[in-house]
Design a protein around this nucleic acid. Sequence first.
DNA 1: CGTCTAAATAGATGCCTATCGAAATGCAAG
DNA 2: CTTGCATTTCGATAGGCATCTATTTAGACG
Lengths: 190, 190
Amino acid sequence: MSETLLAFFKAMADESRLRIIGLLAQGERSVQELARALDLKEPTVSHHLAILRGLGLLTVRAEGTTRWHVLDHAALEGLSKRVLQSATAPPPRGADVAEDKLLQGFVDRDGTLKQIPASRKKRAAVLRWLMRAFASGRRYSESEINTLLQEHHWDSATLRRELVGHNMLARKDRVYWRLPETDWKSGSAP
Amino acid sequence: MSETLLAFFKAMADESRLRIIGLLAQGERSVQELARALDLKEPTVSHHLAILRGLGLLTVRAEGTTRWHVLDHAALEGLSKRVLQSATAPPPRGADVAEDKLLQGFVDRDGTLKQIPASRKKRAAVLRWLMRAFASGRRYSESEINTLLQEHHWDSATLRRELVGHNMLARKDRVYWRLPETDWKSGSAP
DNA sequence: CGTCTAAATAGATGCCTATCGAAATGCAAG
DNA sequence: CTTGCATTTCGATAGGCATCTATTTAGACG
């Protein structure tokens, strides 16, 4: 998934390949034609075409010894849409593998917390996930905290109390801040 | 325009920067935090942040000596949309500067030919633009020609005849092919 | 002003890859 | 089978860029 993202951007991050895409969007072209149009040698063009083929962006048709390449508009559009969606997606879930499955039960794909888990262990996992919204070293007002939490669940007050109870957030006066992750184990039950 | 496109893809074509974007999508982070999270040195992170700032993707807030960076979601989404639109756009008009203005009067943004120009000079310009759909060296059946032309105008028959009359397409039996551009000047009136 | 910390800049190094020439492959035609 | 052409594969080179160390700038605090 994420590999495709990187691969896609790397493929598009080259001027020659962008120009090739432009030409192949207009119609079929042979390697020769492309080489002449771009002022490159055939091996170079072949190299670029291989990369674009690897992403499934091209359709090839052999006619004798020459190969006619053309852009697969649908493939490009599809790939782009998927890439953009994941690139501009709202707060993504963690890269952890262990917790991820657990979270999928309680967190919607758009980042909405469907329900606050009753089980202490599961609740802790969800709270850890919520902590991704808070940077360490920064101080937050209570209203800031609520705004951030409400993006995931309506009951920001409960979540805020839970976070403090699990030693993930600390509070003094009306100011909150993130505690180091090493403290999170020794939570006193709320 | 096209520079922005390349710059955007180059900026996104790096794993470290993608991870930085991921982190800054969740909330504010300092350079230190990012360096620790990514296992990189501060100068490296600083370098990446400068590139992302250059594209206007980040918002920075100074607090003492530390700078809190955060992703500007709107900017990313806007840039992405624009980039994708131009990357997946239908048959683009020429890179010529001279003809381009002329074409804008007859060709819609989506590539539809609104009207076949009556003036011979303007008609020739439009026909030249249509020829971008045809590769040299390839042979086309009449139905292929019609299919390609109908993407731009319903009256493919007239367009086909005009293209032959202007020495842009040649015809023998029922097969058509593109003529070299040097022939296009000496058109015998249809 | 001197010191401490956070970040930016400068300069050096190493990896990745776009590009090329040369050689190999594949296909068509005599 | 041999010849010829279009393309791919191979190996080498060079330029770009991510990353590092070392240094400089800038703010906070006494």
